[in-house]
Design a protein around this nucleic acid. Structure first.
Length: 550
RNA sequence: GGGCCCGUGGCUCAGCAUGGAUAGAGCGACGGCCUUCUAAGCCGUAGGUCGCGGGUUCAAAUCCCGCCGGGUCCGCCA
């Protein structure tokens, strides 16, 4: 709805959209008068007034005012009414800007050598939220986990698995990482083992049967545990793509010959691509002297496949992959292929420093989830009206919500230092706050039904300032979705939902609903129901359970 | 050494792409609100040289240059 209003404003002024922005002083404000005033050496206020005098009335522009050269637009009563009616009418479908296209989102893709830690899930949460929002936007989205099964660390894990076995009583990813950590210690004591590692890697790449079985076994175990963790966070991938597949299905050979045909390969024992023309210091090696491929070779092959199957592909990667990511993009461009869009996120570190799976220095996602759940459970314990089963359900939903929200609300480029105290806090600016607002809406509506629910009838002329503000905010849903899909900033959506909850609580405080008289009651119930729908749809996009009671 | 990212009240962040109207929140602090729709809530008060220094502009947290602090990358690893 807000998108339509915005369009009308842009059209009415015949102005570039970058001059039209959101503002505290209006529903939309235009600054173009400053620009024109400068060019014509005139007074901005005068220019603005002149521009406004030429504007034809439209359906959704209610009023216009000129202040200090700003042109301020306010929505019409009709706009408010259409917004509420549209929300109530579309219900679950409300909020889609109806985009089209095939999109692939690759996220998480952590090495299958142990459990996910709190750094990995920043990736998972950003990726999953983005995928949910893109789906809501109308795009056909598939999600993939790229399994790095050919890496050195998997060879080390495999050797550790053979040498020490694993503790079958543990969750498989946690059991696997013990072998990995132990083997790394072993490797430090005895560097001769290095040869074994290399030998195993070569055998796997060549398709040696015994090596393949061993790798499969180890990787599957790790993935089993990883999937379970992701599941707890409401995250599920459509597919797990093993990088070794691209060695076996010919894509690696294809990408190498494409590079060769374009004369991009320098074969000097190893095969490499010289990117110095693009400002890279060192060449990129795509084939070792011993004939085996490297991570980037397989990744290039993967992206050749993506080019053949999708219009748009997005990768979520840690900031440590920036260099490789950009090399990948540039090489693909040199081949005339489409590069992936990459969302880089900065690291999550512990107060005592960065994490390391290899040295066993990390907080696992499982531990985090368990502790946040325990904390939520303590609070839920006070709710006498909930059964034990409900309490468990609510605590779990609150815990997962708190976790997901904490990660998604921070802009990806911001470094995070993990803090237990904050992770276990459920007040304000958190998912619980939004869930709570949603539960309040539900509670009002439940009681209204008990007392005999009247028809919902929103009447713009009955709106107070706060009601109006709330409704305008509700109208921005698809506008915000569009922004997130174009800019790949899921934190913007978290921010938006927080604002909606905030505006609702503002309304809730001094606008009695159930006690209001007939007309007003019907009007306010419509607002409550519309807010409920927006909060519920929004929470689902964040992968957070919209609780009806808590 | 070079590249990239970050630096906004005591703490955590939004705003920066496309410069504009008094720089917004939350936590923490202090003071209030539960015989009234869920107090996981609400209201009020205090608290800011937007890292520092220059520049561009009628206008800079936002753009440009330099510096400082933190992070990260610079393997025939992934």
């Amino acid at each position: 709805m807000f998108l339509k209003f915005r369009e009308e404003v842009i059209k009415s002024l015949k102005v570039d959209e970058r001059f039209v922005k959101e503002s505290d002083h209006a529903d939309l404000a235009c600054t173009v008068a400053f620009k024109i005033a400068k060019e014509q050496k005139r007074d901005p206020q005068e220019v603005a007034e002149e521009l406004v005098s030429e504007i034809e009335p439209t359906e959704y522009i209610g009023s216009i005012e000129v202040v200090n050269g700003y042109i301020n637009f306010f929505v019409s009563e009709e706009f408010l009414e259409d917004t509420i009616n549209l929300i109530l009418d579309q219900d679950y479908d409300y909020g889609s800007p109806n985009m089209k296209g095939e999109v692939l989102v690759e996220h998480t893709s952590a090495n299958p050598d142990g459990p996910l830690h709190i750094g990995h899930i920043r990736n998972s949460i950003i990726g999953d939220t983005l995928a949910r929002i893109m789906k809501k936007a109308g795009l056909n989205v598939r999600t993939q986990y790229y399994v790095n099964d050919m890496g050195r660390q998997i060879a080390i894990t495999a050797l550790g698995f053979v040498r020490f076995g694993i503790d079958e009583s543990k969750k498989p990813d946690h059991a696997i990482v013990e072998a990995y950590i132990r083997m790394n210690e072993e490797l430090e004591r005895n560097p001769d083992i290095e040869e074994e590692v290399e030998d195993l890697m070569i055998r796997y790449e060549r398709g040696d049967r015994e090596a393949t079985e061993l790798f499969r076994r180890v990787v599957e175990l790790a993935l089993e545990g990883i999937k379970e963790t992701l599941q707890k966070l409401n995250i599920q991938h459509d597919e797990f793509v093993w990088e070794s597949e691209f060695v076996r299905n010919g894509y690696v050979d294809r990408i190498l010959s494409m590079l060769d045909e374009r004369g991009l390969l320098k074969k000097d024992g190893a095969w490499m691509i010289d990117l110095s023309g693009l400002g890279y210091e060192k060449p990129v090696v795509v084939r070792r002297e011993n004939g085996t491929t490297l991570y980037i070779t397989r990744d290039l092959a993967y992206h050749l496949w993506k080019n053949e199957n999708f219009e748009r592909f997005v990768n979520v990667l840690g900031a440590d992959h920036k260099l490789v990511g950009r090399q990948l993009q540039d090489i693909l461009r040199l081949l005339g292929l489409k590069p992936p869009e990459i969302v880089f996120f900065e690291f999550v570190s512990l107060p005592e420093g960065s994490m390391s799976t290899r040295r066993g220095k990390f907080i696992s996602a499982d531990e985090l989830i368990d502790r946040v759940y325990a904390e939520a459970r303590k609070i839920v314990e006070n709710r006498k009206e909930l059964s034990d089963e409900d309490k468990d359900y609510v605590a779990r939903a609150v815990a997962v919500g708190a976790l997901r929200f904490d990660f998604v609300k921070i802009a990806p480029e911001k470094q995070m230092v993990f803090d237990w105290r904050k992770a276990l806090d459920f007040e304000r600016q958190t998912a619980a706050y939004i869930q709570y607002s949603h539960a309040r809406c539900c509670s009002i509506l439940r009681k209204a039904v008990e007392k005999g629910m009247p028809d919902l009838d929103f009447r713009a002329e009955l709106c107070t300032k706060k009601e109006r503000d709330l409704v305008v905010l509700l109208s921005k849903f698809s506008y915000v979705i569009t922004k997130v899909v174009n800019e790949l900033k899921p934190n913007v959506f978290a921010e938006y939902l927080l604002k909606v909850a905030n505006a609702f609580n503002d309304f809730y405080r001094d606008h009695p609903v159930l006690k209001a008289e007939s007309e007003l009651r019907m009007h306010r119930l419509a607002i409550v129901d519309a807010t409920r729908i927006v909060l519920r749809n929004g929470l689902e996009l964040l992968g957070i359970e919209p609780l009806e009671r808590m």
